[in-house]
Simulated assay, not measured.
Amino acid sequence: MTRLLRKWPLVVPVIALLGLVLTWGRDLPTGAVIVVAILLIGAVLAAVHHAEVIAHRVGEPFGSLVLAVAVTVIEVALIITLMTSGKAGTESLARDTAFAAVMITCNGILGLSLLLGATKHRLVRFNPEGAGAALAVVATLTTLTLVLPTFTEAAPDGRFSGAQLAFIAVVALVLYGVFVQTQTNRHRDFFLPVDSAGKKLPETAHATPPPTRTALISLVLLIAALVSVVGLAKGVSPAIEDGVRAVGIPSSFVGVVIALLVLLPEGISASRAALRNRMQVSLNLGLGSAMATIGLTIPAIAVASIWLPTPLQLGLGPVQIVLFALTMIVTTLTVVPGRATRLQGVVHLTLLAAFIFLAISP
C-alpha cells in the first residue's frame, strides 16, 4: 500500500486520461460528476508534482517559473471552458479569476508562508531586490489590465476596445518576458534563497536534483495531466456554476473557486519551502503565479475572446480596487525590509479573509 501511495503521481494522470475518454461529450449524473471532480483535483495535484520535479531539475529560479506556467495553463483552460458555455455572468469570469489569483497569491500564499516560516524559524529572510521587482510587475500588470478598464471611455461596462485590449495584451507579454529574462539571466541572484543572515545560499545547499530520465518522464506525465485538467474541467463546469447559484452566492465567486483550485498545490509548495526556511522560493512561487496569471492569462483570454460567445469584461469594481490597493501597500511594506515575522503573515491572511467574505457577501 505504501509503495502504491508513493506512485500516485505516475498513476493519477493515466487514470485521469482514461476518465476523460469515458466521459467526454456526455451529460453526467451527480455521481459521475463527483468522480470527475476527484479526478480533476488529482490531475491538478499530479501536474504540479511533476512540474516540481522538472523545477528541481532545472533549479531556481527556473523552477518557480515552470510551476507558474503550469498553473497558468490550467487556469486558462478552466476559464475558457466555462466562458464557452455562454451563460450569464461568464463575461467577467476572466476578471474574477485573475483578480482572485492576485489576492490569493499576494495574501493567501504569502501570508501562510510567512506565518509558517516565522513560526518555525522566528524570523524569515528573503531578497528584497527580487521580491520588490516581482511585486512591481504584479502591481503594474494588475493595474493596467484590471483597474484601467473601469475608467476608460472607449467601451462601456468595464471593457476595453479592441485596440486597447490588443495594446494591453502586448504590453503584458512584453513586461512578463522582460521580468523572466531578468529573473533567469541578468539578475538571477536576486531570486535565490538566502540564509538566516541574509546571505545567498550556495547551490550545494539544495537537495540533489533528479536524473534527466526522471525529469523527462515527469514532462510527459505533466502534459498528460494538463490535457486531463482541460477535458475534465469541461465535464464539471456546469456543476460548479449550478452549485454556486444554488446557495445564493454571486456568480463572480466561480472565479474564486477556479483560482483556489488551481493555486492550492502552488500554496502547498510555497508552504513547504517556507518550513524549510526557503522564503525566497515561497515569494517566487506566490508572486510568480500572480504575475503569470495576469501576464499570460489575460493575453490568452484576449486572443480567445475573438471566438468566445460573450464580451470580455475586465474592469474591477470599487470594493475590489480598494482591496487591491491595500494589498499592494501591505505587500510593499512586507517585502522592503527583506525579513518578516508572524505579524505580517497574519495581516496578509486577514486581507484574504476580507476578500473571500466580500466576494460571498458583496
Rank of each mutant, 00 (worst) to 15 (best):
I306A: 13
T145H: 08
T293F: 00
P9Q: 01
R3S: 14
T105E: 14
V21E: 06
N107Y: 13
C106G: 13
L349P: 00
V12S: 02
L141R: 03
L261V: 10
S113R: 08
T23D: 12
L18A: 12
L165A: 14
T341V: 01
L114N: 07
G111T: 13
G25D: 09
M291Q: 14
T72A: 08
V14Q: 09
V244L: 07
A101K: 06
A205S: 13
L326I: 15
L173W: 05
T105A: 12
P250T: 11
V322Q: 03
A354G: 08
A98Q: 00
H187I: 00
S228I: 03
S252N: 08
L39D: 06
L78A: 05
G317A: 04
P210F: 02
T97M: 01
L216T: 12
L123G: 05
A215Q: 04
I268E: 02
P61V: 00
A32Y: 07
F126N: 00
T350P: 08
S161Y: 08
R26C: 11
I360D: 07
G111C: 12
A37F: 00
G111Q: 09
T152E: 07
S289M: 13
N127V: 02
N185W: 10
G177D: 13
T297D: 12
S92F: 00
T84L: 14
A55K: 06
L296T: 06
F357D: 13
I41R: 06
P9W: 00
V227S: 08
V14A: 13
S271D: 04
A246I: 07
P193F: 04
V44A: 10
L351E: 04
G177H: 12
E60F: 01
L110V: 15
L283C: 03
I329W: 11
R159A: 05
P9L: 02
A340H: 03
A88H: 00
I249G: 06
E60M: 01
V102G: 12
T334F: 05
R276Y: 15
P318E: 03
A270R: 00
L28W: 09
T143K: 01
G317L: 01
G255C: 00
V12Y: 02
T72S: 11
K199Y: 15
R122D: 15
S113G: 11
M1C: 12
D27F: 12
T152S: 08
A302M: 04
A68I: 04
L65P: 01
H49R: 10
L144K: 05
L192H: 08
L45N: 07
I168Y: 09
V21L: 12
G31I: 05
T184A: 08
G162Q: 03
I329F: 14
E75K: 04
L18R: 05
R26N: 13
L222P: 10
V58N: 11
L112R: 02
R6Y: 13
L148V: 13
V73Q: 08
K7H: 15
T184K: 05
I249V: 15
A353H: 04
L349K: 03
W307D: 13
F151P: 10
A207R: 07
G132Y: 01
L192V: 09
L65G: 01
L116V: 14
P309K: 10
S85H: 14
T214G: 06
A215I: 02
